[in-house]
Amino acid sequence: MATAIELKNVVKRFGEFNAVDDVSFSVEEGTICGFLGPNGAGKTTSIRMILDILRPTSGSISILGEKNASLVRDRIGYLPEEKGLYKKMTAAGIIAYFATLKGMPKKEARSIARELLQKYGLGSFMDHKCEALSKGMGQKVQVLASIAHSPDLVILDEPFSGLDPVNQEVMEEVIRDLKSQGKTVLFSTHVMSHAERICEDIVVIAAGKLAFNGTVQQAKAILPRRVRVGGESIEKVIPSLDGIVSCTPVQDGREGVLELIVEETTDSRNLLKSFFDAGVALDIFEVVKPDLHEIFVHLVGEDAREAAHR
């Protein structure tokens, strides 16, 4: 499979500040890649560099096989983080305009614009001026504007922010539709649940540095396997069991519940059996499935908090 985006040792410096610091990652064609990171981690700067809106201080970027996004800009769709529309243009007009800027013939652009608005539930607002649309509707219009010219690569910067749950689902649907058409999607977010639901690959950056690049499965493997147990005089039994790395009380406020970090090789069924064998009356036995949220906090927690205090 070919590579849609590849960054090699990319650095972007604003004065003394390294907004992006030696970041390398790649996105395969036809995949949905989540671009995750806390606020101020350098996501938007990276995206702008990928799109050739900003130029990197050093390092190289290749996009759709070219060195520079301006050579393939007609094949790219982009939704920036801060969304805005021409207030005086109609919803259909603005989508058509952006599509024509991407080289689509005018007539085709107009009919595509109407088609898309119809498909994603804005049919009755087609000829409304953008200033009359609600924020969420405006955002949808903008998303549609970024994909109207049927780009091979779609880059969405925070597509979910500001949308209500129903529209967040519509947004997820849009992204899945794009994948089913064989498009590549890179989207940034800091809401992990979306990434977990729709991404295959994720890139995590924190404080300008790459923290992780791989599949969601691989990301989940970063966190150690954990089991939560609770029961009478359970503490006494634990040291005698094999395959347990550490044991701490849980942080969620439940009393008498312990979180065990177990070795990779430990089978949870065997662990349960050994508890029975030791004659412990178990109240609780949970195998913790790590979600992206935890992985995210694990990967960037320190940096994010630091950044928040900066």
Partner: peptide, 17 residues
Amino acid sequence: IEEKSNRIIEVLLSSVT
């Protein structure tokens, strides 16, 4: 100023130089 304050400019710049 409208394009700038509306942040339309970024989309424009991804399409045109």
